[in-house]
Amino acid sequence: MTTAAATRRRYGLALGSLLVALTASACGAGVASVVEGSSPKPQAMAAAQGACKTPEVPAGLSTQHVMSGDLRRTVVVYYPHGRMPGKPIPMVLDLHGSGSTPLQQISGSNIAATADKHGFAVVAPQAGIPFIAGKSHGFAWNVPGVPLMNGRPVPSGAPNDVQFIRDTIATMSKSLCADQKRIYVTGFSGGARMASQIGCELSTEVAAIAPMSGLRLPTNCKLNRPQSVLSFHGTSDGTNPYNGSKQLYWSYGVPAAAQRWATADHCGKGVTQQVVNGVMSTTYNGCQGGRQVVLYTVTGQRHSWPGVAGAMAKGYSLPKIDPNEIMWSFFDSHPLDATTT
């Protein structure tokens, strides 16, 4: 086993133990920390950035709650171990796929190890629509104007998940003492579609997005500022096909989605190059406001979070790159513009 693989395995085992402990806590007397109340205004949070107190969450995993509308919504948080209080912390929202849960997303994306290494907090909200995908019983996002993955319309009265994400950013920013210039959003599949929506609608609050296996540009997207976008997508994806499909929730292909974002950001022409064997990157530079759009195309990758075991179709090996490291490097190099805070 390589050093990198051994490290990932150790983090996987540690996270697995934490998941078991958290699940047991949720079934008990409610020992998880809870955050409730009205959402603070971003201006007030920005003014308080110079005096960060001890975060209101423990290190590692915890379940939090955010009031959105009249609903008490669930959010799972991973706060990095060894992080010293007193300085604002970057915050990454990690949105689960259709039929999944926040715990499954944190585990499946292997993001906790990356958070510990680089010192950022992970916030994984729970979508508002109960949803079954195969054997998985979880939740789906209410993406405006987009049907569910099974083709059915969003149920009448479904919660406003865009507002929920907005409320989550506001509430958890206060609880975590988040750096208002370093709030990012990633997500997988349906969570990637939701991350795409958030990147458009909350472009003045979210510094960059990284939709994995589900990049879209929302219909009638009108950016208040250019948005940096990173995405990974596999050519063997049967759920969100790389070159598009006739499914109403999907339609056009991923290269077209990246091009649409590049057009919205007023970028230059895309440049494609090989990163490693089996991985090509298409990069759009020269975007307005120093933004950037990058698409990584992974030959043989299934509908999966990139870089994890089982991600590749038969006959293909995992590429020798670390997508989470690439994602964090992209996020870290794209803070929110000072003029838009």
Score class of each variant (00 low, 15 high):
Pro88Cys: 03
Val77Gln: 12
Val35Met: 04
Ser189Trp: 10
Leu176Phe: 08
Asn110Met: 13
Gln292Phe: 10
Ile198Ser: 12
Arg152Ser: 13
Asn160Glu: 01
Lys41Pro: 01
Arg182Ile: 07
Ser228Cys: 05
Ser245Thr: 15
Thr239Pro: 02
Asn285Phe: 01
Leu15Asp: 00
Pro159Trp: 08
Asp116Arg: 08
Lys41Ser: 13
Ala29Lys: 07
Thr171Asn: 01
Tyr296Gly: 08
His96Asn: 10
Tyr79Gly: 05
Val35Tyr: 00
Val123Ile: 15
Val162His: 00
Ala256Gly: 06
Pro335Leu: 09
Asp161Gly: 06
Ser62Thr: 14
Cys177Trp: 05
Tyr252Val: 03
Thr168Glu: 03
Gly119Trp: 09
Val229Asn: 01
Asn224Ser: 13
Leu61Gln: 04
Gly69Gln: 11
Ser333Glu: 07
Ile321Ala: 00
Ser304Val: 02
Met212His: 07
Gln301Cys: 05
Ser107Asn: 12
Val162Tyr: 00
His65Ala: 13
Gln288Glu: 12
Pro241Met: 05
Ser136Arg: 14
Thr23Trp: 07
Gly307Cys: 06
Gly145Phe: 03
Val279Leu: 02
Met312Asn: 02
Lys174Cys: 09
Gly234Val: 00
Met194Arg: 08
Gln163Ala: 08
Trp261Pro: 07
Lys320Cys: 03
Ala338Phe: 01
Gly214Val: 07
Ile106Val: 14
Gly286Pro: 04
Leu248Cys: 04
Pro80Trp: 12
Val293Thr: 12
Gln43Trp: 04
Asp332Trp: 01
Leu217Ser: 09
Phe330Asp: 06
Thr114Pro: 00
Thr204Asn: 08
Asp70Leu: 11
His233Ser: 08
Val123His: 01
Pro155Lys: 06
Gly214Asp: 03
Leu230Arg: 15
Gly290Tyr: 09
Cys221Asn: 12
Ala127Cys: 10
Cys267Ala: 10
Ala311Lys: 01
Ala309Met: 02
Thr272Phe: 10
Trp141Met: 10
Ala264Gly: 11
Ala47His: 12
Thr297Asn: 03
Ser329Met: 09
Lys246Leu: 14
Leu71Asn: 11
Gln163Phe: 00
Arg302Phe: 05
His303Tyr: 04
Leu71Tyr: 09
Ser107Glu: 14
Asn277Val: 11
Thr54Met: 08
Asp337Met: 13
Ser317Pro: 04
Ile111Gln: 05
Asn160Ile: 02
Ala6Trp: 05
Val154Arg: 05
Ile165Ala: 04
Gly69Pro: 14
Thr74Leu: 12
His266Lys: 14
Ile132Cys: 02
Ala6Asp: 03
His118Thr: 02
Thr7Gln: 13
Val276Pro: 03
Ser281Arg: 15
Met312Tyr: 00
Val254Trp: 06
Gly97Trp: 08
Ser136His: 12
Gly134Trp: 01
Leu22Asn: 06
Thr340Asn: 03
Val77Gly: 13
Val271Met: 07
Arg302Asn: 13
Leu295Glu: 14
Gly37Cys: 05
Pro55Tyr: 06
Val294Tyr: 11
